Structure formats: structure tokens, C-alpha cells
Amino acid sequence: MKKYLGTVALLVGLSFACSSESAEAGEPESQVKTTFINPVWDGADPWMVKQGDEYIYCYSQNNSIVLSRSKYMTKLGEKKAIWTAPSSGWNRNCVWAPEVHFVDGHWYVYYAAGVSGPPFIHQRTGVLRSQTDDPFSNYEDMGMLYTGDNPDDPASNVWAIDMTVFEHNSKLYAVWSGWKEQMDTDATPQHLFIQEMENPWTLKGTRVLLSSPEESWETGGPLNLNEGPEALIHKGQVFIVYSCRESWLVEYRQGMLQLINPDGNLLDPSNWKKQGPVFEGNDLVYGVGHCSFVKSPDGTEDWIVYHSKKSTTPGWERDVRMQPFSWKADGTPNFGIAIPAGKQISRPSGEVVLEESEGN
């Protein structure tokens, strides 16, 4: 996430913190290429999902939420701004990290926003719902989700960003990054919370603290945080891959929670085990974080889409990258080593054949 940390944030410049980085497609190719190079485009907090034979990519830009749809993972396609922040209200500014999910015939967008910033102390999570099963249809604002400890008192809502949702055993769950209590400084530790959903725009019961930044590999800098959680489900196993350390530093990296008993209670923190880092930067790739997961066009490969810092200088200038990953014998993901910029990578399986068949 692009944010905060009081004095530190001022040192690296926050003039751009409330306007999201844009995503731009590459130049048209004169012939079909079998490889691509990272980065694929500018941006941060990349969310890509495959629906049918299309890839839907969701990002924020100038306090609007934009969708792209394309038959190719490595190329953005037709774009549409499906929502723009209102001129007044709780969500009028600082639109961060939107995700779009297809649930029960509608597309739902989960995003963070606030009234102002810095300091970024007002962030809450909102939900939009499409009118039809077309991701480019009009969207209805379903309001703010309550992410505190007392649902009967809406005024007691608590800071929340980076919400994602997933289904498991016919139940819908939300996971997000939040504060234990509302604070008047954005230099506040962030934790991961989980909660069952009554429906895609309403949380059920009360939140459960799932993960705190406690391990040596997720602490040690000016601010301890867990954020950017994303669900990864494979052969019945459930994983939550999340970002830790500071988003503006090269140490930003990925940790992972694994559901110990997939048939057990997801709301029991003891049913999850933590390991990490499972994906991190190196001498040539800086601060990898906030990922999403998609299948290749032919469904035979798994890919991680993530952002990294453009330089070692503290700040939030980032670009989007992608690379394939595999699975270990114990059923856990093996994300490998972050591939440096400029190195040729084979395009996702099925993408070249698809492009050739369309005569592009």
C-alpha cells in the first residue's frame, strides 16, 4: 500500500500518496513474440483475476477505480473507469488497492478510501456491486464495511485496508489489514483479521485477529505491519500470502499462512501456521509485495503477479511484474527467486497460440 509513517513519509514525499499509480499497456508488437520481460507496466497492488477466457485487471487511478479486460495476461486491454470517488463523504480521497471478485452472478469491488491524508488515519473499506455479470457494467455503491469489534456501534469502526474475499466449504470469508483500535497516527502496527461474510457486502459476527507482525523476518524496521493478504487455494489446501515489513523500503516481502486442517474452523487462529519469507527481493529486485495469483490461458501454469520498487530509494514508485511458480512435494507453493527486469521470460502457456490464432 502507498502510505504513511508520519515523519518518515514526509522525508520521501507524500505528494503522490493519494493518487494511485497508473497501469499502461506496452507498445503494439509487429509480430507475435514468445517471451516478455518484467516489468510489464507501471502500478502497484496488482489485482488480476481470470474469468472464462478473459483476464480482468483492477487498479486505482486519480481516485477512480479502473478495470481492464484482455485475453492476455501480459497485455492490458480495453479499459473502463467503473467508479470515481464522490466529492464528499467518507470515501472521497485516498482510494487504495481495489480488488474485483465474481460472486453469485455479480462483480464486487473491495477498496480502501478515506476523507483525507496524510496522516492516513481515516482509511476504511468499501464495496461496489455490478448491475450484471459484465465487469464493465455500472456499479452500485454498497457502502462501508464495519471492521471493528462492536457492530452495534457503527461509530466505533476501525481502520481497514487491502480487503480480499474467498470461498471455502460453501462459506464466504473476508481477510484484511487493520488496526487493533482506531488511532490518531498512521505510524500504527497493522494486523491481519478474518471474518465470515453474511453476503458479499456484509460481514457476519465479529472480526478475528489472525496474524500479527511478530517473527524476526516481518519485524525490525520503523513500522511493523501485515498487509495485502491474498488467498491461494490449491488441491483443497488454503493459503493466505501477505506482505510484511515496510511498503516503502526494499525489505518489503511476502509471508504465508497455511490452514492446518482445511475442514476445520477458519476463524480459529490456532488452525493456521505461519512461515516466511516465502517470496522476497534480491540485489536486482526491490521490495516485492502485494500479489495476486492467476492461471495461464490454457490452465496449466500458476503465476504470481506482484509489484516491486523501482529503486532502492525509500518511497512508493513501483511497477508490476509477473512470473510462474511451482508447487513443492508437501503441497506448498514455491515462488522461486524474483526475476530481474529485462530478463526474457516465456509467455504464459497458451498465450502465444491464442495470439497467433487471432492473427495479432
Results as ranks from 00 to 15, higher is better:
Ser349Asn: 08
Asp268Gln: 04
Gln237Ile: 02
Glu54Tyr: 02
Arg207His: 07
Ser70Gln: 08
Trp316Asp: 09
Ala85Leu: 04
Gly287Cys: 07
Arg318Trp: 01
Gly264Val: 01
Ser357Val: 02
Trp316Leu: 10
Val288Trp: 00
Ser308Ala: 13
Ser308His: 07
Ser156Glu: 15
Leu11Ser: 12
Thr7Asn: 08
Gln182Thr: 05
Glu140Met: 11
Gly336Lys: 12
Lys71Glu: 03
Trp96Glu: 06
Gln275Asp: 03
Glu355Ala: 11
Asn226Met: 05
Thr185Cys: 00
Glu317Ile: 01
Phe16Asn: 14
Asp268His: 05
Ile37His: 06
Ser346Arg: 15
His106Leu: 05
Gly143Phe: 04
Phe166Pro: 01
Phe36Met: 13
Lys273Tyr: 02
Lys171Pro: 00
Glu215Leu: 09
Ala85Asn: 05
Glu355Asp: 02
Lys343Phe: 09
Lys343Trp: 11
Trp179Thr: 12
Ser87Gln: 14
Ser70Phe: 05
Lys75Gly: 04
Tyr59Trp: 15
Ser156Trp: 11
Lys274Asn: 02
Asp152Gly: 12
Ala113Phe: 00
Ala113Gly: 00
Glu351Ile: 08
Trp303Ala: 05
Gln131Arg: 13
Thr313Phe: 05
Leu67Asp: 08
Pro151Gly: 06
Met73Gln: 14
Asp184Tyr: 04
Ala85Gln: 05
Asp134Arg: 08
Asp330Glu: 14
Asp268Glu: 05
Val12Cys: 12
Lys2Met: 06
Glu196Gln: 12
Ala329Trp: 01
Asn138Ile: 04
Lys204Asp: 00
Asn334Ser: 15
Leu266Gln: 07
Leu284Glu: 14
Cys244Ala: 10
Met163Phe: 04
Ala81Tyr: 01
His106Met: 07
Leu267Asn: 05
Lys235Gln: 14
Thr84Ile: 05
Gly281Asp: 02
Pro151His: 10
Ile233Arg: 08
Pro135Phe: 03
Ala113Gln: 02
Leu5His: 13
Glu140Lys: 13
Trp107Phe: 15
Met1His: 10
Asp283Thr: 12
Leu284Ile: 04
Ile82Asn: 11
Glu356Thr: 09
Leu225Gln: 06
Ser270Asn: 12
Asp283Cys: 04
Phe102Trp: 06
Ser130Lys: 07
Leu67Asn: 09
Ile65Leu: 14
Pro333Ser: 09
Met183Gln: 15
Tyr55Asp: 03
Trp83Arg: 14
Thr147Pro: 03
Val238Ile: 10
Tyr111Trp: 06
Leu11His: 04
Asp134Tyr: 04
Ala97Ile: 13
Glu196Trp: 00
Trp47Thr: 11
Gly342Lys: 14
Trp316Val: 07
His122Pro: 01
Tyr111His: 10
Ile37Tyr: 00
Glu355Cys: 02
Ser211Ile: 01
Asn62Trp: 01
Ser116Met: 13
Ser19Ala: 11
Gly236Ile: 07
Trp327Gly: 10
Ser357Trp: 03
Gly359Tyr: 02
Glu29Tyr: 00
Asp184Thr: 14
Asn265Lys: 10
Gly331Pro: 10
Val241Cys: 03
Asn91Asp: 14
Glu356Asn: 07
Ala174Phe: 03
Gly220Pro: 07
Tyr111Val: 13
Tyr4Ile: 13
Ala25Gly: 13
Trp316Lys: 08
Leu172Asn: 01
Phe325Tyr: 15
Val352His: 04
Met322Asn: 05
Leu225Cys: 06
Val175Met: 08
Val294Ile: 15
Met1Leu: 10
Pro340Thr: 11
Gln190His: 12
Ser116Leu: 11
Lys71Arg: 12
Pro86Ser: 09
Asn334Glu: 15
Pro39Tyr: 08
His101Gly: 01
Lys204Asn: 01
Thr35Ile: 10
